[in-house]
Amino acid sequence: MNICVGVLLLAFILVSEAQLQSSGENVCHRVDQRSHTYLFKTKKMIVKEKRVDCWDISQNFRCLRKLYEPVYEPRTRVVHVPVFYCCAGTRLEGSRCVREIPTNIWTRSPSGCDCYFNGAQDCACCEFGGCQCDRSHPDKCVQCGYGHTCSAEYDDLNSMGLDGWTLTETGCKCDGSPGAGPCPCCQNRGCPCKKGRTTRCSQCGLPEMCFSVLE
């Protein structure tokens, strides 16, 4: 009986480990070895004496009886347990594994905009000055004209600064000359904003961007 209980508990362990949808996208699995302890019913018996109700008046209707109880011993065995987890480059979201989207100064959101290559509305939305990558990286934008930086080896480059045009909000001279100062430091050939968000930079020649750059 206890062996069956042990098997049921083991089955519960296996099922609980697999709550992450094993057939879902981006789900990887491995097999771990674990020690499982259970009670094994031996052939040994324990003899106990106990008084029970009876019809023997000489024993005051409480007879002494011998009771035989089986002896259980703990046993340990190695079991193989499947473990499901999110593959590299993905993260757990609810019960699904979704792709990790690296921080990218040109990407406003990884989806929600029309794809330029097929018209489907499941591609990245870009910041000002950013353009969608091709179908191999539909969830990413990079600086327009620099499509070769869509590959992962350029992720660090596309993650620098506060946005595509602003490296830091202070630290540069306001006239653009080298040296420390209270004005923003620009990148990717951006220009400091003179109005609007004066702590940010915008694409040179497009000062209207200074009123719409994100925090």
Rank of each mutant, 00 (worst) to 15 (best):
N2Y: 15
V5I: 12
G6R: 00
L8M: 13
L9T: 11
I13F: 08
I13M: 13
L14R: 14
G24E: 05
G24A: 12
H36N: 06
H36G: 02
T37C: 15
T37E: 12
D53P: 13
D53Y: 12
C54L: 00
F61E: 04
R62I: 06
L64N: 06
R65Y: 15
K66M: 06
K66Q: 11
V71T: 02
R75A: 15
H80M: 12
Y85G: 09
C87Q: 11
G89N: 04
G89S: 03
T90W: 04
R96C: 08
C97H: 10
V98N: 02
E100L: 00
I101Y: 13
N104M: 08
S111F: 05
G112L: 06
Y116C: 12
A124Y: 10
P138W: 02
D139Y: 04
K140R: 08
C141M: 07
C144Q: 05
Y146K: 11
T149L: 06
S151M: 04
Y154R: 04
L157P: 06
G161S: 10
T166P: 06
T168K: 08
C172F: 00
C174I: 04
G176E: 03
P178S: 05
P182R: 10
C183E: 14
P184Q: 03
C186T: 00
Q187H: 07
N188A: 10
C191K: 07
R197N: 02
C201Y: 03
C201E: 00
S202P: 05
L206Y: 14
P207V: 02
C210T: 08
E215H: 14
